[in-house]
Nucleic acid binder design. Structure first.
Lengths: 228, 228
DNA sequence: TTTAAAATATGATATTTGTCAGCTTTTCAA
DNA sequence: TTGAAAAGCTGACAAATATCATATTTTAAA
């Protein structure tokens, strides 16, 4: 079994504040899992009872609206932790997490995390800080959703994806999303997303072949995103 | 000077987890302020350097979008605390807070709160819980903004306002908002908000005279909010 | 490999929402 | 008290977006 002390998640998450002894305990009680592309990490309404450390892969975090449409709230990359909120608020999850590609994750049971939260102030403060940052992005997203046009949101999302996942040698953004997923990120109909992507392509601002998308003109895309 | 131990804010916020000694220290270093209707509690980009306890009054928490339109993210009632996020993330505020009526607030400087966060695990865990809850509502708001129509959002907002602020004897919701503020809550143009309010009035679902708004038919409004 | 299902694409059209203009009512300070 | 400014209201129209229909391409299972 792999040790948590060596894990990528430890480097990038609040877990870096755990002591050696705490890490050993976590190592001892964690379970490892492979989640295949398209499978649920967890579902809306589910008791999670712990947190997931993402060692490899990416998942989309989404929520069903009352209209029956899915909204993707966030994409979570390897190195990150997910599920800590429901654990802290002690409620069933209000979100679903679905693997976008094959994932390797570890599951740490609730009791261990809660114990560390209570005993280790540095850890607890760092989790607090992470949540404060999440709240800030959530606020920004609320404003964007409420006030920006679909075109602006698409432009911004493409830039965010490039920033978050990087690009391959050819400038292709390193994440493969269906048109439906893109639409569900920006909060629009799939057809609208497709149309606007085609429009950006026609204008030479982006290029794509299937799910391989490359941004050719970042500046122009930023202009659109910021409303000039 | 009033003691924090008697304060309404203590009853309803995480401060209830502070010990007697901690409360005394807070009492000693806090400053009291009157904020008049329309004045800023704090502004976007400002270093807050502490938290505000709202003893009386209501403020709107908003953010300017890049399009130059204001979005109201939340309304904060007396008994609550505001400003803890920027304090925790150690950044300038990304939000503005403006008094909707005359307010009485106390300001607790950053150092005192940070000290309590580090020393008092129960307090820190409760702040964590509060933030987890805020994140959940933020997620819900993102989904609503992205997926619901303006009409749905208006219906939902009216129900939320009634729930949050209660009603007077005549069924009038106990908060006075301008049409512009209502529009900025639901994320639409003022004219659209006015039009939809008129429509609801014409259908007998709500009644209003100026800023006095009463819901006559909660069920029907819920149907609209939930998309039936 | 074949083939059915899913994803992508595009046109036509309907609906929603925003914008602009002009008018009335309310508010508030001189 | 009054008059200017702000807020509220409504109509006409424009722009953005959703929906429906249908065709094409891609994917994946048999």
């Amino acid at each position: 079994m792999n040790k948590c002390s060596q894990c990528i998640v430890r480097q990038f998450s609040s877990l870096k504040h755990l002591t050696k002894e705490e890490l050993l305990r976590v190592s001892a009680c964690k379970t490892s899992k492979i989640i295949k592309k398209g499978e649920f990490l967890f579902e809306e309404g589910e008791h999670i009872n712990g947190v997931f450390c993402i060692k490899d892969g990416v998942c989309k975090v989404s929520k069903m609206s009352e209209n029956g449409k899915n909204q993707i709230i966030n994409l979570i990359n390897h190195g990150n932790i997910i599920g800590e909120r429901s654990l802290i608020s002690n409620e069933v999850s209000n979100l679903s997490a679905i693997a976008l590609n094959d994932m390797t994750v570890c599951f740490i049971p609730k009791d261990e995390i809660m114990r560390d939260l209570q005993m280790n102030a540095a850890f607890s403060l760092d989790v607090l800080k992470t949540m404060a940052t999440s709240l800030k992005s959530a606020d920004n997203l609320i404003v964007d959703m409420a006030q920006k046009s679909v075109k602006q949101r698409l432009a911004e999302s493409l830039l965010n994806l490039k920033e978050k996942f990087g690009t391959s040698s050819q400038g292709v953004i390193d994440i493969h999303l269906s048109r439906e997923d893109i639409a569900n990120i920006i909060g629009t109909a799939t057809e609208s997303a497709i149309r606007l992507l085609s429009e950006l392509k026609k204008k030479g601002i982006i290029e794509f072949k299937g799910k391989d998308i490359a941004i050719l003109n970042d500046q122009e895309l930023e202009k659109i995103a910021h409303g000039f």
